[in-house]
């Protein structure tokens, strides 16, 4: 199992792993491969688009992008060995602390923001006299708005179970900040809309089934049958579409 899968499973939401297929396999092939290898069922994303050039020739290669969006470490994961885990651990630690370069006057704002108190963090920025306060304020709002947009896309994609989780966290964060609270309330209204009840139930059932089968034998006939039954029961929902896709992928011949 690739180290990155282990990192995603063990570190959960503290890290985002992105797998980039580099040998020209199409989406169906690499997704079916990942299912078959029991690498799915976690937060890792899979794509064949390269967000950056490969650090070296020969696979696998890895690159750690730090909390500030810069390359921290890159190379062959085997050769990097312990350095990669240590660098990742250090970045996770950084993600929970104010940036080292943040002015002392804004440290409290960062601490509040990272604890999920947007209104408190913005109030600290407004009271600060350092020039960086305005940029910090903009950064906080940009990050919260990006999370709200993400929830919108999750709802559009029928990923209600995940959207529910993110919305609950956002509701706590934006409490006391009218503008963002109104945007989060719109998403909550979507989630609570009785018209979405069946799609929500389908999403919950799909996620539960994925969690159960992803580390067993995902394409075992019994699991495929369960997924097929889910697709039939919740026909017409996005979750059913995903279940149907899973069934189709299970039929792809291994190694093709």
């Amino acid at each position: 199992m690739p180290t990155a899968v282990k990192h995603q499973r063990e570190l959960g939401d503290d890290v985002q792993v992105i797998f980039v297929e580099c040998q020209g396999a199409d989406r169906d092939t690499y997704e079916a491969f990942a299912w078959r290898m029991k690498w799915m069922g976690n937060a890792a994303m899979w794509t064949d688009e390269r967000p950056m050039e490969m650090p070296g020739s020969g696979l696998p290669q890895t690159a750690l992008i730090g909390v500030d969006g810069t390359v921290v470490l890159q190379g062959n994961p085997g050769a990097l060995g312990k350095r990669l885990s240590e660098a990742l651990e250090a970045e996770i630690k950084k993600s929970k602390q104010p940036p080292a370069q943040a002015p002392a006057e804004l440290k409290k704002a960062w601490t509040l923001f990272l604890k999920g108190d947007l209104a408190g963090a913005l109030a600290e920025c407004d009271a600060a006299t350092v020039p960086a306060a305005a940029d910090t304020r903009t950064e906080f709002l940009a990050r919260i708005n990006a999370r709200i947009e993400r929830v919108k896309r999750m709802i559009e994609a029928g990923e209600f179970a995940l959207a529910e989780e993110h919305t609950a966290a956002l509701e706590k964060s934006v409490k006391g900040h009218a503008e963002t609270a109104a945007k989060v309330a719109e998403q909550r209204a979507q989630l609570n809309d009785p018209a979405n009840a069946r799609a929500k139930e389908a999403s919950k059932a799909f996620e539960a089934l994925v969690e159960k089968i992803s580390t067993e034998k995902p394409f075992d006939p019994g699991n495929v049958k369960k997924m097929s039954a889910l697709a039939e029961k919740f026909s017409g929902t996005k979750a059913a579409e995903r279940a149907e896709r899973f069934v189709a992928l299970s039929k792809l011949r291994a190694g093709v």
Binding site: Q16, I18, C22, R50, L64, I65, V67, R143
Partner: peptide, 19 residues
């Protein structure tokens, strides 16, 4: 899960695995 760009992940470490 709603992510469209690396910018949306700012503040969180990202591990890109070329395979």
């Amino acid at each position: 899960a709603g992510i469209k760009s690396l910018a949306e992940l700012r503040g969180k470490p990202v591990l890109i695995d070329f395979w």
